[in-house]
Simulated scan of single mutants.
Amino acid sequence: MAKLYAILEAVADRVEMHRNIGDQRTNWNTLLLTSINAITLAAATMAGIASISSGGAPEAAMKLSSTAMYVAATGMLSIVNRIQPSQLAEEQRNAEVMEKVLALDQAYPLPLLGAMLEKFPADVEPAVWWPQNRRKQPKGINQGYNGWNGKLEKEMREIVNVIKRKDKEEYLRLGEKALKLNKILAISGPVLTGLAAVGSAFVGSPSHGDWAVVLGVAGGALASVVNALEHGGQVGMVFEMYRCNAGFFNLMEESIESNLREEELERRENGEVFEMKVGLQLGRSLSQLRDLAEASSIEGEDIEEFASKLF
């Protein structure tokens, strides 16, 4: 009992830690978004004013200030786009709701740099927050009838097939789209502010004509739009949400398959309880779960229905 209380205390502390860090990183996302957009728009305004100034110290001051602000915005954007505050916040929110200790810190790291998850992975993989080596139930814990029969095994196999073909595949596909959009926006923001900094530096130069003004003003305005879309729209958070949802279905798939692979029925989870648990996780009643399995066995890969009714 003392050991169980010690584990419970550790879980509670870890959940609170992830909650606090998630709140902190949510605040970072809001403050950094506001600050960078304010700096960028102010720099664009200064570049525009410098282009119509009569020369002398006022024009030089405007140009210098605009260039400095664009350079600062470019640096801040490069850092923010690397760490993705909205995605960091979503990682901590996911860790908070799992309420587990094992494998949790590896799946949703607390450090800001070094150990953090890859924000722009080459391939989208489901999030994994559970130990890979599952413990078997002790032999004899479910003596007698364990609720498993051929019909239930067939039903669970069909459910796994639907989860693989429809639900998990759909969230991985959406995750890839969100990742591509996030990559484009993350690159575009610093590039636009960098070009705007170059343009603002040449405002008023007779040899460069009007292009410097256009680049200095339009580049800053476009950079603000891109930054607002990326971080105000929390594209990184959306990607992480899709990856976590795919992980949820991956966990269900592994859980069902691990029970089906176990030849000794006594070591399996109770079949009736397990069927009810699968139904609850998918937001289905037992009758709806059985209807889905029957539809999958008839329609096969042509089935249009998703396994989950929750999300």
Results as ranks from 00 to 15, higher is better:
R82D: 05
A196G: 12
E91N: 08
I79K: 11
D123W: 00
Q24C: 09
N259S: 07
A61I: 15
A127Q: 08
L64A: 08
I256N: 07
N20D: 15
L181Q: 10
V238P: 01
I256T: 06
E266F: 07
W129I: 00
A6C: 01
L195T: 11
G194A: 05
H231W: 11
E240L: 04
R165T: 01
T26S: 15
I163M: 08
G140D: 12
G232E: 03
L152C: 09
S35C: 01
L113R: 06
A12E: 14
A95F: 09
M156K: 02
E153H: 08
G140L: 07
Q87A: 11
P58F: 03
G283F: 10
Q84D: 11
L251V: 00
L33N: 15
E305M: 04
K164Y: 14
M62K: 08
Y145T: 00
K180M: 08
Y145C: 00
L289E: 11
E266Q: 15
K100T: 13
G147S: 14
E304H: 03
E264G: 04
S66Y: 03
R157M: 10
D105C: 05
Y5T: 02
V11Q: 15
A73P: 11
D167V: 08
W211G: 10
E269F: 12
E96M: 12
H231G: 02
L310I: 15
A293Y: 10
K63L: 01
S258G: 06
G219K: 04
E257R: 07
F249H: 04
I49T: 14
G236I: 02
V198R: 07
A95M: 06
Q137F: 09
R135S: 10
L113E: 09
F311W: 13
R157H: 10
M76E: 13
V217E: 10
F248S: 07
R290V: 03
G283R: 09
S53R: 02
A73T: 02
R19L: 05
K309N: 11
G220S: 09
R25M: 12
L215F: 10
W28C: 01
V203C: 01
